[in-house]
Design a protein around this nucleic acid. Structure first.
Length: 606
DNA sequence: GCTTTGTGCCAC
DNA sequence: AAACGTGGCACAAAGC
């Protein structure tokens, strides 16, 4: 059974039961539902979650709402967890683009209000908690905003009918989405994709709610060790100041030389005859000049200070937790993006500050060579799947005789998936293509489709955007009567670049789908694992005694768990990986091995 | 003064 | 090795 959450005027909510599963024409509401005050919703949800599964319905309901971040954060703050959901905004975005549903009424309809929904911040609506700089929400449902309440045309009439004021109707939208899925070329795949995307939204909200355990004192010690004590506002830390002096001395530069100014520093280096064309690390490393060592160290420490220094701590860590905004589906390929604190670029060097609470552990799990394994499975490449069976896929490729060294196997596969055209990776590509023709053909075909201006799709049906104006312009420019050689070259360059994008899209996007399924399964299994008998920990409810996801990084998760449950959690992440593989690829015999480490500090994993 | 662009580095 | 895919972010310089 689904339960649709319909915003009403004046902060009330209509809760409508919709029987499932959906028919081809979509579900019809069982009744007009009932209207509850906004602050009663957590209680209503809790009742249906805990009571619904044991009485009338065999499972907890599926909550259908416009945006998970509008409803779920407040539920979590009330300690209420939901089992499953359907996020209409995220689902529509997928269905609008998907080549698998291109014939549906939903796909061909002109843009409507649902298309205009911008994502909401993970801290929810009307909350002051959470990130310091949440993205500005621009939504059509401004329930908590006084301005909109006063704009409400009429008081709700006992909950009958769609939302007031011409607001989009989630019941109707759900029906349209059901219809689009049912009439698509692959209903099963799309259904799984939408479920996984929505489960991802739940995970993201829960991870924001729980946060990543962060020891401010450890972080401060890291900074002080490498930079010196925290300086007053506007001053360089002692260590950076000393290095700046060394840089000036090595260049014979005046004390006014500011190493933070690229033009000035480059000029000074030119006078000193260093011979650098840029300040890039890899370029400096090739040079033999006394300024290079202090400059490299300066850049290193400067990066630490500006990206993850004391200011970062002040902004993003509070109450012993680092909280970022995960943006589900924020990357075109379906990967998550993040906003705030650079969460997806957490440098290795500061992971020492990620420490489990007392009596708790971190279970860190990492999918080994996820993308080439996904490629093997998508392409039904039995040979490549076999190469990955023993554990290390790249070693397996060497053992197959295709290439001589593990390093060659690795750069060759990465090049095949990224579209590399030079160096060792391009050199071994023909040998990989001979040994694994199906896998290599899949990425080559994806590249050609992109070069033609076509659309490609992931395993579950997320489609790439059409190339759009830039592609058209490039082609038009190249074929114009007066097209010069450079116009043709520009067009070729852009076309190939788009081919590299679509080549990578199918692999990266399907890997993102695997990761979504993995996390959805981990989430469910962790909850089924139940709670620890010990005292409540520092984690907020509903996770105070329960293992929960705390961090996600494309192919890696961190679970924060009561120590006695750590071993069981390790088994959970492995079982979930196997389940994700089955969900995406059925019986195709591809393994998704994990590296699992149970540690106190994130830095101690792998 | 403010916004945009360029540079460079971090993650997968 | 880099360039070869996807991003975020901070800072200085350039542009308005």
């Amino acid at each position: 059974m689904s339960v649709v959450v319909v915003p009403q005027a004046a902060g009330t909510v209509r809760v409508v039961r919709v029987p499932g599963p959906a028919s081809v024409v979509g579900p019809a509401p069982a009744d007009d539902g009932r209207v509850v005050a906004g602050d009663e919703l957590p209680g209503v949800v809790r009742d249906l979650e805990t009571g619904g599964a044991t009485t009338a319905a065999p499972r907890a309901p599926r909550w259908v709402w416009d945006d998970t971040n509008r409803w779920y954060p407040a539920l979590l703050r009330a300690g209420v967890r939901v089992e499953r959901a359907h996020d209409l905004r995220l689902a529509l975005r997928i269905l609008r683009q998907s080549a698998l549903a291109s014939g549906s009424a939903l796909s061909t309809a002109p843009p409507g209000p649902w298309d205009g929904l911008a994502p909401l911040p993970a801290s929810g609506v009307g909350s002051t908690a959470g990130a310091r700089r949440p993205p500005q929400a621009d939504s059509l449902f401004e329930l908590s905003e006084p301005a909109v309440v006063s704009r409400a045309v009429a008081p709700p009439e006992d909950g009958a009918g769609p939302p007031p004021g011409g607001a989009p109707d989630p019941v109707a939208e759900l029906a349209a989405q059901h219809d689009a899925v049912a009439s698509s070329a692959e209903p099963g795949r799309l259904r799984l994709l939408l479920a996984a995307e929505s489960a991802g939204a739940l995970v993201a909200a829960e991870m924001h709610h729980a946060g990543l355990p962060w020891r401010t004192d450890v972080h401060d010690a890291i900074l002080t060790e490498s930079l010196g004590p925290r300086p007053p506002q506007g001053q360089r830390p002692a260590r950076l100041e000393a290095l700046a002096a060394q840089i000036r001395a090595a260049l014979d530069a005046p004390p006014t030389l500011n190493p933070d100014s690229h033009p000035d520093l480059l000029k000074a280096m030119q006078y000193a005859g260093v011979g650098a064309r840029s300040l890039r690390k890899w370029e400096l490393e090739k040079l033999d000049h006394p300024v290079v060592p202090p400059l490299l160290e300066y850049k290193n420490l400067y990066r630490l200070l500006t990206a993850n220094g004391w200011h970062w701590l002040d902004d993003w860590v509070s109450g012993g937790r680092f909280r970022t905004e995960y943006v589900v589906g924020g990357v075109v390929t379906g990967r998550w993006a993040s906003s705030g604190g650079g969460a997806l670029q957490l440098p290795k060097g500061v992971r020492r500050a990620v420490v489990a609470d007392p009596g708790w552990r971190l279970v860190v799990a990492d999918a080994a060579q996820l993308e080439p394994r996904v490629l093997a499975a998508m392409a039904h490449d039995e040979e490549m799947a076999r190469a990955g069976r023993a554990g290390d896929l790249y070693a397996g490729i060497v053992a197959s005789g295709a290439v001589e060294t593990r390093e060659l196997a690795k750069v060759g596969m990465l090049g095949a998936m990224y579209g590399g055209t030079t160096g060792a990776s391009a050199q071994v590509l023909p040998r990989l293509a001979r040994a694994f023709p199906r896998a290599i053909a899949l990425v080559e075909e994806a590249a050609r489709a992109g070069e033609r201006g076509g659309v490609v799709s992931t395993r579950l049906g997320r489609s790439s955007p059409p190339p759009g104006g830039e592609w058209d312009a490039a082609q038009a420019g190249a074929f114009a009567d007066d097209a010069g050689a450079d116009a043709a070259a520009r067009a070729r360059s852009f076309t190939r670049s788009w081919g590299r994008f679509t080549r990578n899209f199918v692999v990266q996007g399907t890997a993102a789908e695997w990761a979504l399924c993995w996390m959805a399964s981990i989430r469910r299994r962790l909850w089924e694992l139940g709670s620890d008998d010990g005292p409540a920990g520092l984690a907020p409810e509903p996770f105070a005694r329960r293992p929960h996801l705390a961090f996600f990084l494309h192919d890696e998760v961190v679970v924060h768990a009561p120590a006695p449950l750590a071993d069981a959690v390790g088994q959970v992440v492995r079982d979930a990986a196997a389940e994700a593989g089955r969900l995406l690829f059925g019986d195709f015999p591809v393994d998704f091995p994990l590296t699992v480490a149970t540690v106190d500090s994130y830095a101690d994993a792998k």
